[in-house]
Amino acid sequence: MSITAKNIWKRFDGKAVLRGVTVEAPTGALVALLGPSGSGKTTLLRIIAGLEVADSGAVQFHDDDITRHSARDRNMGFVFQHYALFRHMTVFENVAFGLRVRRWPEQKVRDRVHELLNLVKLPEMAARYPAQMSGGQRQRIALARALAPEPKVILLDEPFGALDAQVREELRHWLRRFHDQFHVTSIFVTHDQEEAFEVADRVIVMHDGKVEQAGTPAEVFEHPVNEFVMKFLGRVNVFQTLLKDGRVLLGNVEMPVGKGAVVETGSGKADVYVRPHELDIGRTADTGNCIRGKVVHINPAGSVVKVRVHAEDFGLMVNVDISPEKYRSMDLRADDQVFVSPKTAKIFEPDYTI
């Protein structure tokens, strides 16, 4: 069951929090609404769920317009950040609640609840109360409760935001495995880029009440459409360059941005963006097209070694990511002189502002 929100506008106290937003979750897809706080993600999710009413626009299941349907009639499961479990009810009663409201036969209720508790790997928790469970267990019960009435769509509002890092990572893997098994059309809100890229089939980047970019995680990360998306999706070095005769120059260093209207017809200053892994580092200026600098800090923890270089000629701090193997082979240390060269770089239309 696909779901589409078309040209959604919403204002609070006269301020537009959604400005003509259109998003689509294809049948069976897991879609992430990704963006900073205040970008309109949760408001959009609540409008899709029927918990908020849009000022204008439409919400559709396939070709059916459900804009004026109540939240109950939309048959969607909603999972909140803070679980929203009933504290005075056992786990069994929490999961059964929505089924009893819908007047399911008691035996069918019991069968469905036991099926879901087995699905989320917590059958032994049926008689416990939420306070007797960990945060990760409570969130899995919240998902089981959302799944109980056999919804057409699952909506999740920062479902792992209240959990610690290790539990959050475990639940991300669990949600991805669950989705691969059952393929329920799902939309989840997050401000965590790593979470969106690891879990989602499709990422929709939002900012200031509108959609900046939509695509697969690889498309969005590797081909950002503007400065905001580039900066929001991970660390990036920003170099202020000169456009001259179809070249992009940082001093005598030419930035490999490729050809395009901005480069070929532009003049004056322009910001160029290079991610840390898109820079190479060496002890000699072999390529000739490189920035001289001094190592000021090295963080060798994890699968990537983060090297911070001071390029005194330009008054810049440059972040470079290298593999542990390269770090060991170079035997890098603080205060070493190095040469940094860009492997690729991006430039955007100069009139875009954040």
Rank of each mutant, 00 (worst) to 15 (best):
P217L: 00
R308Q: 05
L233Q: 07
A334D: 12
Q166A: 11
F160S: 09
V101A: 14
W9H: 12
K294T: 15
V199N: 00
R235T: 04
F221C: 01
D13F: 10
R275K: 10
I141F: 03
G315Y: 02
T67I: 04
V305A: 09
M330S: 07
I154E: 08
G38I: 12
S37A: 15
V113H: 00
K306H: 08
V120K: 03
M230C: 08
A196I: 01
F314E: 07
A131M: 13
T90N: 00
T43L: 11
R275V: 02
Y327E: 06
G77K: 04
V220K: 02
V238Q: 14
L99R: 10
Y83I: 01
I281Y: 01
F182S: 09
V211T: 01
L99I: 08
R235A: 07
D111K: 14
I48E: 02
K244C: 04
Y352N: 15
A29C: 11
L85E: 06
K6C: 10
V95Q: 09
P342T: 00
A96G: 10
F182C: 08
N299C: 10
E170L: 02
G251T: 15
S186V: 05
R140Y: 15
I8V: 07
V59W: 10
M317H: 14
G161N: 07
Y273W: 02
H114P: 03
I48D: 04
S329V: 06
Q337F: 10
S329E: 07
H179S: 05
L243R: 13
A301G: 12
V338A: 14
T190V: 08
G38D: 14
A16F: 09
V17L: 09
D73Q: 09
V220H: 00
V225M: 13
E195A: 02
D286K: 15
H207E: 07
E52H: 12
G315L: 08
M125K: 12
A311R: 04
T90R: 02
H82P: 05
A285K: 15
H114N: 09
M133L: 15
H277Q: 04
E198T: 14
V153H: 03
G50N: 06
E227H: 03
L99A: 08
L243D: 06
S70R: 04
P149W: 05
Q137M: 11
A84W: 00
I187F: 07
H82Q: 07
L163F: 05
V95R: 06
L233A: 14
V257I: 01
L18W: 03
